[in-house]
Design a protein around this nucleic acid. Sequence first.
RNA 1: GGCCCAUUCGUCUAGUGGCCAAGGACGCUGGCCUCUCACGCCGGAAACAGGGGUUCAAUUCCCCUAUGGGCUACCA
Length: 486
Amino acid sequence: MTNNERLRFAPSPTGDLHVGGARAALFNWLYARKTQGKFLLRIEDTDRERSTEASLKSILGSLRWLGLDWDEELVFQSKRGELYRSAVEKLLESGAAYRCFCSKEELEAERERAQREKLDYHYSGKCRNLGKETVESYVREGKPYTMRFRVGEGETSFDDHLHGVTTFRNETIGDFIIARADGSPVYILSVAVDDADMGITLVMRGDDHLSNTPKQIMLMKALGYEIPRFCHLPQVLGQDKHKLSKRHGAASVLEYEKMGFLPGAVVNFLALLGWAPGDDREKMTLDELIEAFSLDGLAKKSGVFDLQKLEWLNGQYLNDMPPEELLPLVSALFVEQGFIQKDEVDSRRDFLLGVIIQLKERCRLIPEFAEKGAFFFRAPESYDEKGERKYFNDIEVADRLEALADSFESLEIFDEASTEAATRQVVVNYNIGVGKLIHPTRLAVTGMTTGPGLFELVTLIGKKPVVDRMRRAAEYIRKNSEETNG
RNA sequence: GGCCCAUUCGUCUAGUGGCCAAGGACGCUGGCCUCUCACGCCGGAAACAGGGGUUCAAUUCCCCUAUGGGCUACCA
């Protein structure tokens, strides 16, 4: 465990950052930071068809959003063709690789036959021992060829950090292609070359790469490279226990950002999916994660992404966050909703902080501030249906509401203590329980049956609008009862 | 089909041979607090896939089976 560890995350820019990828990135990052090593980023953009600039931007954006910073320059595979070509050349010269002239159709037929006969298929090795002259004449004819790696006898094994010694018999692998007919390198080759070239000391990636590892090792050996250590992480699954994908709802980090999750909560949650600190901590900051992180805490079992737990965690973050920190996020939402103008954010700062304070322990996601707090900005357009039936069911309610409105109006100081005192006084006059007045009042002022404490909310909104809303509700109740009676 | 990997409450996990009649968290659920909701607090139900070994002793070690997953491309 020196501080010379070099880790990497190698996404393909073919979409947004996937949750599984983000978790792999996180573990690499944590290990690098823990060991004071380097965390590198390599962009696997050799698939020209599917790679896009927009995806790259999106992935980098998500990484930054999560707080995962990287060291050194980005490595683009698309810019390293020369490196791969010379590696292939070297393998060809040493005899570790050979030209294969088999056509796609031939190979396809072979594979189908094997499948039909339920036999284990791998390349027949037809071109493996072609005579020198044959090869030369084919090349002269311009017959297209791919490059194949000559897989030797024996077995290939490595000591995976998580899975221990894992062994593959070479005969089950079969000579594999390392360069296409157009000369471009295939993934397995570029990975081997890049990991060596970048000096990666520990390859930590999804366990879907487990069976690729022996190939990578054979290539590295043939190229005379030092073999890195490996650690294959379990996958992230959806509720149906299949690999997390769009079908399960949100599979990319970006979507969670849009849904109103906080980066700290997402990172925290991802860290706990497949890793445990060894104690009972759940909520942990990035620094605490670095501090506690160890490869030993990694799980072997793939984990199901539990949205409910993420939501809970996010709620914890929201609740624990100082209101000032929430202000930019929440006010941006309010502006977007048309609750306030952008230039009002500063002048109404105290009011907005008040709203946040009253709402934050009731919200799990940022957008809920708008759903649960619209009434702070405008009078309710309608009343909760159940609430209406329960609290606006009596003409007397209108009288009481008006009585309380009058009482509120006459208050010199309109604060929690005075409004509560006024309410309790009115209740005594009518000889009813305090709840009998509080609930209708809340419904009148907010349109809802749930929310912050009535006296807090009412003082934040202010006397005038509150009194207006109460009188309007009283009127509404009267009108309704006339209709139903008449 | 072949190869490789995995298997503790519904879910995330603790547990590395005795401390486990299995602990925590989410969710579910009973209650307390209370003007409602939420928060918080106190309780509850809920798991070692099955079968063989090894051992004085297995959740922990080995084997088999079952189940799930991955790879088996001129994708990455």
